[in-house]
Design a binder for these strands. Structure first.
Lengths: 120, 120
DNA sequence: ACTCAAAGTCTGTAAAACAGATGTTGATAT
DNA sequence: ATATCAACATCTGTTTTACAGACTTTGAGT
């Protein structure tokens, strides 16, 4: 299983990139901001592979961005820490940039409502 | 070779994550902001595999974040577009969050100057 | 023409991702 | 209490991706 060895790069961008430069990490945190807490909830909302979710949740715990509510055992809730919530301004910037610079041409905006579920 | 099929997800975070949720993409753009322009320059500064750099440069071109100065041929310069420069506030937020929440304990800040080159 | 180096490409190997089946453990109902 | 169900994973086999390092091509300079 993939583990998270935190980067010691002197550049903060380099350190952040090690953690945030991963599509699933970004999407899991997004779902966390939107209220997701449970394993199966992330599975369904993101259509992520179970092993991939397990490894990313472990990484996020090691990095201190989430806590597992019963630290071990079943029926776990994965909760965002303050450290994760501090990412909200970053997500706001990301959404702003994306809305302004990714796909402004309307041709791309057609056919979105087709399937009900989220997709990456 | 890995190509870039832009995401049509309705959520701007989902679209951004498809492009920015990649460690090398984040680091290549960082080096671009810091003045890197040439293929070999990125190779040396990031210690990235040549094939990996080739594929990421292609993705960044397809996404419109960089242009290749002679569109084909040798001695190319890879230049950031306005679209890429618009990411600066996002990088600022990332650096801010990273500095505040990744490795604030000083134990981690020791031993940085050991090897001269950048490391991810 | 010769050399050098920049910008890739190729090859073989190691790591990671994935779908889908299986296992394990708590909660709930009977 | 025990049978059942669902949540939280783990395991297996396969496909995909990453990587180091050698090789190739092409333009520039001499």
């Amino acid at each position: 299983m993939k583990t998270y060895q935190p980067s010691r790069a002197p550049c903060p961008i380099g350190r952040a990139a090690r953690l945030l430069g991963d599509r699933w990490i970004l999407l899991i945190l997004r779902e966390g901001f939107l209220g997701a807490e449970r394993f199966e909830e992330f599975i369904q909302r993101l259509s992520i592979n179970r092993a991939a979710l397990t490894s990313r949740l472990a990484i996020l715990q090691e990095a201190g961005l989430i806590t597992r509510d019963p630290p071990s055992g079943k029926r776990a809730r994965y909760l965002l820490t303050d450290q994760a919530c501090a990412l909200v301004p970053l997500y706001a910037e990301m959404a702003k940039w994306s809305a302004e610079h990714l796909f402004d041409d309307d041709e791309m905006t057609a056919g979105w409502a087709a399937s009900g579920s989220h997709q990456s």
